[in-house]
């Protein structure tokens, strides 16, 4: 049988299958089962959710492979895991474990302040964070098969996710309005690869799937991001830092499907218990912001 090395289309393809779904942060096999039973399309295996990483301080690294393997054993849905920005050896280790997606994530402490991982040679697909179109296209040029808005992780405050999604989609609309003669200057001003700018102008969207992440805590938050145009939702601390994780997880899954139906959103938002406490993303001191990690 002619079996090719999975090329970019196969990497991008898994992200296509996750669309319209919710990817949930989990810290152990029990939480992974709760997420799967609630309708998650994938889980992100990590040792601490972003809210705890913020609270604990110190250096946040790739999770213990034993934990990742236990979570892979526990569920039938895809399992993602995070490596530090630029830490290509953590990525090699995660790939060797057989994880389905690697998140090169600003939630962990960056390992390299100049270079992100060169992602093309890996068989496993990568998802990366972005705050604007230029950042998204730089990551895609490096080989990212999926994007997510960075938002401000671990805050429960959706304002940064909204800012980043509006920025990406606004810039795409602007790019579509430009004549041929002005695309190069757009590429220069946004520090974006020219060929990818042409491709986005042609498609009217990013060439890979784009989810929202960073601060989503309620069904209404998820539906807001979907109506702004993202393809799906990451929820980090918002589920297992809430009063009733299972119920909230189910509600966010339903809201991501029925994001355009206010009456259904009203129904699923009822009696969910306490949302995560949260803190204002805008008032965070500069050195506590995660979204500004990476470039």
């Amino acid at each position: 049988m002619k079996q090719e090395v999975p090329e970019f289309g196969v990497k991008k393809g898994l992200a296509e299958m996750l669309k319209g779904g919710v990817i949930m942060d989990v810290v152990n096999a029990d939480q992974a089962k709760i997420a799967e039973d609630a309708g998650a399309v994938a889980v992100m295996a990590l040792e601490r959710v972003p809210a705890d990483i913020r609270a604990d301080g110190g250096i946040a690294r790739m999770s213990d492979p034993e934990l990742v393997l236990q979570i892979m054993e526990a569920v039938s849905i895809p399992v993602m895991a995070k490596c530090r920005i630029g830490h290509f050896v953590e990525a090699q280790i995660l790939e060797s474990l057989g994880v389905d997606f690697i998140d090169e994530s600003e939630v962990l402490t960056p390992a390299d302040e100049a270079f992100h991982i060169y992602k093309h040679p890996f068989k496993v697909p990568f998802v990366c964070g972005c705050r604007n179109l230029g950042e998204a296209l730089r990551r895609i040029a490096e080989g990212a098969a999926m994007m997510r808005t960075k938002g401000e992780p671990g805050t429960g405050d959706v304002v940064e996710a909204v800012r980043h999604a509006r920025s990406v989609y606004g810039q795409i609309r602007h790019l579509q309005s430009l004549p041929d003669a002005e695309v190069m200057t757009f590429a220069k001003d946004n520090q974006a690869p020219y060929e990818l700018c042409l491709q986005v102008r042609e498609l009217g969207k990013l060439p890979v799937v784009n989810f929202a992440a960073g601060g989503i805590a309620t069904p209404a938050d998820a539906a807001l991001m979907m109506q702004l145009g993202v393809d799906g939702i990451f929820v980090g601390s918002g589920i297992f830092k809430s009063g009733d994780p299972s119920k909230r997880a189910e509600a966010i899954v339903k809201a991501t499907t029925h994001y355009n139906e206010p009456a259904i959103l009203a129904e699923i938002s009822r009696n969910l218990g306490e949302a995560m406490v949260g803190r204002s993303a805008v008032q965070l001191p500069e050195d506590e912001k995660m979204a500004t990690r990476g470039w």
Binding site: E4, P6, V10, P78, G98
Partner: peptide, 11 residues
Amino acid sequence: FGRQIDSFTVG
């Protein structure tokens, strides 16, 4: 066929 790293295309 396995996990994502075993995904493939064939004609």
